[in-house]
């Protein structure tokens, strides 16, 4: 493994001053300025802003609804959530380690940490399902009272978004050879990493809100 895998600089992202005079139009026409390399990370930041608004709407609805009246009965949060949280945090660390190994051109660890991340992600989702199962066993369902409505709602919405990240991780796992060779997929790795950390932080926020209100 000798391939260099640093991320593109500003010029490589196509912000350079080409295209004047002699080079003519043909050289620019394939999207020479700005490629998937540059737009991916920008796009994911923007998507994260939107997802933040989505969850802000839910959590502000929760705060308002909690303040409305006497029917807000708190439920004890399933203990497994702490384990899930720990696993999700760990998965962010493993994903970072994976990226570092790649930058250090160590293919084995790169792949290993990537697999670990995906596994932790799956385990997290399974753990969330277990939390649901536990609540259901206690007779607490979606419509039992408004507090648990929000518990199911927020965990489900987060889980759905996380599942999207998980799909991206599976894709990376499937293509890890090519990525390690530096042929392609760098952008997807970078974007996935950003998104995954975001899912992590989002969960911490939601967990805090749930702990305070539900």
């Amino acid at each position: 493994m000798t391939t260099q895998t640093k991320f593109p600089t500003l010029e490589e992202r196509g912000f350079g001053d080409g295209g004047n005079g002699g080079e003519g139009s043909a050289g620019r026409s394939a999207g020479g300025n700005g490629t998937a390399l540059s737009v991916g990370p920008t796009g994911i930041w923007i998507a994260m802003a939107s997802i933040t608004m989505f969850f802000a709407a839910f959590t502000s609805a929760m705060v308002v609804r909690a303040g409305l009246g006497a029917d807000w009965t708190r439920v004890a949060l399933p203990r497994i959530l702490y384990l899930n949280t720990a696993m999700l945090l760990a998965s962010s660390v493993t994903l970072e380690l994976s990226g570092r190994s790649l930058r250090a051109a160590r293919e084995g660890p790169f792949f290993g940490w990537l697999m670990a991340t995906a596994a932790l992600g799956v385990a997290f989702l399974a753990g969330q399902l277990d939390a649901w199962r536990e609540l259901a066993a206690r007779g607490v369902y979606l419509a039992t009272n408004p507090a648990c409505s929000f518990f199911y709602l927020l965990t489900a919405a987060h889980g759905a978004h996380l599942a999207g990240g998980l799909l991206a991780l599976f894709y990376l796992v499937a293509r890890h050879r090519r990525i390690a060779r530096g042929a392609s997929g760098q952008t997807i790795l970078k974007v996935t990493t950003l998104y995954w950390h975001f899912m992590d932080i989002l969960w911490l926020y939601l967990f805090l809100m749930l702990a305070l209100w539900v």
């Binding site: 196509g14 912000f15 050289g27 020479g32 490629t35």
Partner: peptide, 17 residues
Amino acid sequence: RAARVPQSVRSSDMAKA
């Protein structure tokens, strides 16, 4: 945004694009 881009980078960019 003014830096000049080496031809090689630009064409590899294009291939990817």
